[in-house]
Deep mutational scan, measured.
Amino acid sequence: HFTSQQLQELEATFQRNRYPDMSTREEIAVWTNLTEARVRVWFKNRRAKWR
């Protein structure tokens, strides 16, 4: 589960860029205190939901 702060950060990034690269995902991981893998999976799932 994600905190509302984490989701806000993830959503804001998603609005700007639906396909963040590795370095962007790592930055998000640092800001949100999540692993890069969790961030990558979140984006994958979010893109699926967005379609």
Score class of each variant (00 low, 15 high):
residue 37 A to K: 13
residue 39 V to Y: 01
residue 40 R to W: 06
residue 17 N to E: 06
residue 7 L to Q: 07
residue 1 H to P: 14
residue 27 E to W: 09
residue 4 S to N: 10
residue 45 N to Q: 14
residue 20 P to Y: 04
residue 49 K to G: 08
residue 38 R to V: 15
residue 33 N to G: 15
residue 35 T to Y: 02
residue 43 F to T: 01
residue 31 W to H: 14
residue 16 R to F: 11
residue 8 Q to W: 13
residue 36 E to T: 05
residue 29 A to D: 02
residue 20 P to I: 01
residue 30 V to L: 14
residue 25 R to H: 02
residue 18 R to Y: 06
residue 36 E to Q: 05
residue 51 R to E: 15
residue 10 L to Y: 04
residue 13 T to S: 14
residue 16 R to A: 09
residue 42 W to G: 00
residue 1 H to F: 11
residue 17 N to Q: 06
residue 7 L to K: 08
residue 25 R to Y: 07
residue 8 Q to F: 12
residue 2 F to P: 05
residue 28 I to Q: 01
residue 2 F to Q: 03
residue 36 E to N: 03
residue 44 K to H: 10
residue 37 A to Q: 14
residue 13 T to N: 15
residue 42 W to R: 00
residue 28 I to D: 00
residue 34 L to P: 00
residue 35 T to S: 10
residue 17 N to C: 10
residue 50 W to M: 09
residue 18 R to H: 14
residue 9 E to Y: 15
residue 26 E to H: 13
residue 9 E to D: 14
residue 3 T to H: 05
residue 10 L to Q: 00
residue 19 Y to D: 04
residue 46 R to Y: 02
residue 42 W to N: 01
residue 20 P to A: 05
residue 39 V to H: 00
residue 36 E to Y: 03
residue 20 P to L: 02
residue 12 A to M: 11
residue 33 N to Q: 10
residue 25 R to T: 04
residue 17 N to G: 05
residue 8 Q to L: 12
residue 22 M to W: 11
residue 26 E to A: 11
residue 46 R to N: 02
residue 39 V to S: 00
residue 44 K to F: 09
residue 5 Q to C: 10
residue 19 Y to N: 07
residue 34 L to N: 06
residue 31 W to F: 14
residue 15 Q to N: 09
residue 2 F to G: 02
residue 17 N to K: 03
residue 6 Q to T: 05
residue 40 R to Q: 06
residue 46 R to V: 03
residue 25 R to K: 01
residue 16 R to M: 09
residue 23 S to Q: 14
residue 35 T to H: 04
residue 18 R to A: 08
residue 39 V to F: 05
residue 48 A to G: 05
residue 40 R to V: 05
residue 49 K to M: 10
residue 14 F to C: 05
residue 3 T to A: 03
residue 29 A to Y: 03
residue 23 S to A: 15
residue 19 Y to K: 04
residue 19 Y to I: 04
residue 32 T to K: 01
residue 12 A to V: 08
residue 31 W to M: 15
residue 13 T to K: 09
residue 6 Q to D: 01
residue 2 F to R: 02
residue 6 Q to V: 07
residue 14 F to K: 01
residue 51 R to K: 13
residue 5 Q to L: 13
residue 25 R to D: 02
residue 6 Q to I: 07
residue 51 R to C: 10
residue 20 P to M: 03
residue 51 R to Q: 13
residue 15 Q to V: 09
residue 7 L to F: 06
residue 43 F to R: 00
residue 16 R to H: 10
residue 41 V to R: 15
residue 32 T to W: 08
residue 45 N to S: 07
residue 3 T to Y: 05
residue 35 T to M: 03
